[in-house]
Nucleic acid binder design. Sequence first.
RNA 1: UGAGGCGUCGCCAAGCGGUAAGGCACCGGGUUUUGGUCUCGGCAUCCCAAGGUUCGAAUCCUUGCGCCUCAGCCA
Length: 567
Amino acid sequence: MNENNINENETGKSNFIKDIIREDLKTNKNDGVVATRFPPEPNGYLHIGHAKSICLNFGLAAEFSGTCNLRFDDTNPSKEETEYVDSIQEDVRWLGFDWEDRLFYASDYYEQLFDFAVLLIKKGKAYVCDLTADQMREYRGTLKLPGKESPFRNRSVEENLDLFNKMRSGEFKDGEKTLRGKIDMSSGYIVMRDPVLYRIQRTTHHRTGDAWCIYPMYDFAHPLSDAIEGITYSVCTLEFENNRPLYDWVVNEAEAAHKPRQIEFARLNLSYTVMSKRKLLELVTKNYVSGWDDPRMPTIAGIRRRGYTPESIRDFAERIGVAKADNMVDIALLEHCLREDLNKKAQRVMAVIDPVKVIIDNYPDGQVEYVEAVNNPEDENMGKREMPFSKELWIERSDFMEVPAKGYFRLSPGAEVRFKHAYYIKCVSVDKDSSGNIETIHCTYDPVTRGGWSEDGRKVKGTIHWVSAAQAVTAEVRLYEHLFIKENPDDLAEGEDYKANLNEDSLKIVENVFIEPFVKDFKAGDRFQFDRTGYFCIDKDSSEDKFVFNRTVSLKDSWGKTANKSA
RNA sequence: UGAGGCGUCGCCAAGCGGUAAGGCACCGGGUUUUGGUCUCGGCAUCCCAAGGUUCGAAUCCUUGCGCCUCAGCCA
């Protein structure tokens, strides 16, 4: 079956890009070299869509014994900042990828790029144009009508060379002149209608400072950066498909030694969130969220703070595949990947989020005993811990029903349940306040059921979690839900903005959550499963005297589902 | 009658002329000191549509239909 598979490192499922690479390897197209790159523009934080691209590019390199560079496409100083180049590196590393010594910047190539431009001018393939931005738009034509040639299109090579050098030395004002490729003003590919290659812009660049006042455009800098680095597969998203003829034109006319091949794939869309940098930036700057790393954001930084693991994201990237059809992946798949990973790894701990007091009437006053609790039933090696048990405990309000619904097998008057790892407990009575709210549940325990089982074969269907009141750690818990109420936030009524679909309940802060004392020794970033509730991690907002937990994702809840149905 | 892409289960996605993989979601059974996990079973006679070629087509051809992208001196 794998007889055509030349490479033994290949993992996971195949896709059309791997097919192309395999074919090239077979025909020795690039002398067996596989070189990719991840080329972000440092103008924002990376998001889960970038993660797909990162996993793809670094993954291809790993599978085919190649290399993947990290290159910042920093050709527009007015939008780019060092904060972003730092965060991007942190995020790629966190995802688990290593560019070793191959960290590059398009700005590293400005001098070479300039020389390539000079070569194009000398070949009569580029010219300096005086048209204003407005005029250029007019000359460009429309989608259906061809454009017309610039009156500056036929300047002599000498004049173009002179003008281009003067552009560089700052003799013209911003926007006064551009360098354009001389291609075809009637092309169906609008990008081929004499595209701008260089513009004049006096903005301090985050790396080159004020050394340059002309900056190359993406369509010029990107293909040549790829060529300079010897990239074999320049993988990008579908919207650049229209730019491919220009990509090839630039590489060919510049007579680059290496001729990379651009391959486009469909970018990731995730339900109940947005992926556009513009929108994410707006959510941050207008304070709809607390920052780029708000746990509700689809940014790598947000997802990380939320408690996701890099493994789960890589698994997700593998499962969604790589193709060319537009897609909208169900966020439930991402959550599934996370639960699967955390189920195997997370330390279990008992925490009561919506507490109600339980008093064990027949338990000695002031006595505290310690019961043994398994840290992770999926992994014996994670060992056991001791949990304090006493007369006064907290349990989840939803684990008691004075009048049990059909099918409900948790605590209710007269019913017996297991307090996990502790004892069988039976409810005997309930205290209510003046308005009828339950204040205290009185129970009895059966001393012979220590550990949570009995020899008499008594069957106890329900098992609930609890926390001993006196020793409980009090914490704040942040419960998150989808940032948007619609699967596709861009599904809008007439005149609406995507922000109309923001979920007002995406963050619910719960104070006074009681957690077993075991969590005391842990630190920000540590992950847990709160028994029967969900996966949580300690947030960086935690301090000496206050724990803050983020709910990463809840556990699946088939009872909640049926309960909702009958409600 | 501008150009370039894409259309396989609710959502992703294999398939590359030999008679529809897999995952998620969903539904149902079993196990269970998490109504979690695990486990068993169900879930496209059909591949945008209609013609055609072929012994045989989701895969080839034709013609339609639908959706996406492109008119920044952004990337």
